[in-house]
Nucleic acid binder design. Structure first.
Length: 483
RNA sequence: CGGGGAUUGGCGCAGCGGUAGCGCGCACGGUUCGGGACCGUGAGGCCGUCGGUUCAAAUCCGACAUCCCCGACCA
């Protein structure tokens, strides 16, 4: 059924080789001349545009407003929150010369915008009536990473950063969870990736945050990829940036803040999660192109015209149903080539119409994930396509959920922990006493760091024993090696 | 930033002191569309960058840049 000849690397045998091939051959992105920077090609950028459209609508519905702050941040401003600057300083890109002159004060290319936004928020907020303030920006940020991969970790990346200011802690906490759930829903309902959601340990917290919550992806090799974060900043920044508001009783307070973001890394996670040895697999809800139609022409004008007519009919119904589609009628490429190419690009649904289908009054519809072909009457095409896309979306999520569970082990002893990290390299769920020393030791020995304490574990007061030191531990944590 | 490998038409590679080659892709013409077609003709390269050695450098030496793999850092 499927061509025997293999043009792509085996995914699980060598995932990074496979990944690079897919990114290149599916036309998602390529390397730029600058270290760690990437050129996002139209097909890859379309995935980002879909991401933006989906999330942006949710944000706006909640009263979040988009704005734009500058890419340059005065170095002194970045230093205002001590933990913040010390966390980011190793990866800053700094401009020292501009307009042919050495700058009196160096400018940092934003690694994130807390500082430049909050010194402005100071002027925007004076009364409780100004709160909550909910600002988001879609932009690029620069973090000079030592080791880079296309989409997964690039020196410059695109993201969205939401920043909110609230009267009290309760409201801020609610916002943090709301943003976290947006990301969870986006990953699960749109990208069809089952994720872990929880809180980061103190050592993994965002520089300057009181609490950091994160979405963690389990990639097929058992390694971890942080997919999005939502931070409870408490009053750390409002105090350092002197943001205050006057309440109903005319007393002055520092407000409570949050920040949250998701980046183009999500596209990397998407590629890793669903592809196979034939290429990319895109869940229908995020796919730039949901349906591709292939005429199979013959050297016969009458037959070809009939095929074109049938395709036109289907195209019209697809348009009415708002299904993103295109027709690949290139005559200089054989049907075999065109099909393979569409599989590499991960297009969810493929329609083939040739002389045989015309004669039998059917069309062939095939799903990218299962590669199953079905003969369907053209009259039922739209229902069948919609149904197939829904099934595919659900199946991909279910498979992702199964994979996540298969790659997550519960262990009771550190011996077991070590064995797993030396062999299968999975996620591990285990009791941890929450001391930084144990965390560090575990990382030193197994290369595995804490990922999150899952939401349903957070309030637990279990009486377990720390996987490393055997002292009392109340909550189970997830551990994994990071990608 | 430490260790290892690499850099030659768009992609994959060969050449390793003396006239830059092959396969794929691309263009044109023709034959073929049912799972990566075939024949013919043709275009395309300061051999990653800068500097050295030499009568002569893709080839030898040095520095730098970028990529890949393995570590420490991270959305």
């Amino acid at each position: 059924m499927v061509s025997q000849k293999k043009y792509l690397s085996n995914k699980l045998a060598n995932i990074s080789k496979w990944y690079n091939e897919i990114v290149e051959k599916a036309g998602l992105a390529e390397h730029a001349p600058v270290k760690g920077c990437m050129i996002i090609k139209p097909y890859g950028y379309a995935l980002w545009e879909n991401t933006q459209n989906i999330l942006d609508a949710w944000f706006k519905k909640d009263g979040v407003q988009n704005a734009y702050f500058p890419i340059f941040i005065p170095y002194s401003l970045l230093q205002k929150e001590k933990k913040h600057i010390s966390g980011f300083s190793p990866e800053l890109a700094i401009v020292t010369t501009a307009g042919g002159e050495k700058l009196a004060q160096p400018l940092v290319v934003r690694p994130t915008s807390e500082t430049i936004m909050y010194q402005t928020f100071r002027n925007w907020i004076s009364s409780y009536k100004d709160l909550p303030l909910k600002i988001n920006q879609w932009c690029n940020v620069v973090r000079w990473e030592k080791r880079t991969y296309l989409f997964l970790r690039t020196s410059e990346f695109l993201w969205q950063e939401g920043h909110t200011v609230h009267k009290n802690d309760v409201e801020a906490r609610e916002m943090v969870m709301k943003a976290l759930m947006w990301y969870k829903d986006f990953y699960e309902k749109y990208l069809a990736i089952s994720v872990f959601v929880g809180e980061k340990s103190a050592s993994e917290r965002f520089a300057g945050a009181k609490q950091t919550f994160a979405i963690e992806l389990v990639i097929p090799t058992g390694k971890a990829l942080q997919g999005a974060t939502s931070h409870n900043l408490g009053q750390n920044f409002s105090k350092n940036f002197d943001i205050t508001y006057t309440d109903e009783q005319n007393t002055i307070h520092n407000p409570f803040q949050t920040s949250w973001g998701i980046s183009t890394r999500s596209i990397g996670g998407l590629i890793l999660s669903h592809g196979d040895d034939n290429g990319l697999i895109l869940p229908p809800k995020i796919a730039p192109l949901q349906v591709i139609i292939f005429p199979i022409y013959k050297n016969d004008d009458v037959i070809n015209q009939t095929i074109d007519l049938q395709i036109k009919r289907i195209k019209t119904t697809l348009e009415k149903s708002g299904i993103r589609h295109s027709i690949d009628e290139r005559r200089d490429k054989t049907i075999g080539f065109r099909i393979s190419e569409s599989e590499i690009r991960g297009i969810p649904i493929r329609i083939e119409i040739g002389p045989a289908e015309i004669e039998k009054k059917v069309i062939i519809i095939s799903r990218r994930d299962t590669l199953e072909k079905q003969k369907i009457s053209p009259d039922n095409a739209i229902e069948f396509i919609n149904e197939s896309m829904e099934k595919m979306q659900n199946d991909l999520l279910r498979r992702s959920y199964e994979n996540k569970n298969r790659l997550t082990a519960e262990v009771e002893s550190f011996e077991e922990f070590k064995t797993i990290m030396n062999t299968n390299r999975q996620f591990i769920r285990a009791f941890w006493c929450e001391s930084a020393t144990c965390e560090e030791k575990i990382k030193e020995i197994t290369k595995a760091s804490t990922r999150v304490c899952e939401l349903n574990e957070l309030e637990k007061k279990g009486d377990g024993l720390c996987i490393y030191c055997n002292n009392k531990a109340h909550r189970k944590w997830l551990f994994a090696q990071s990608y």
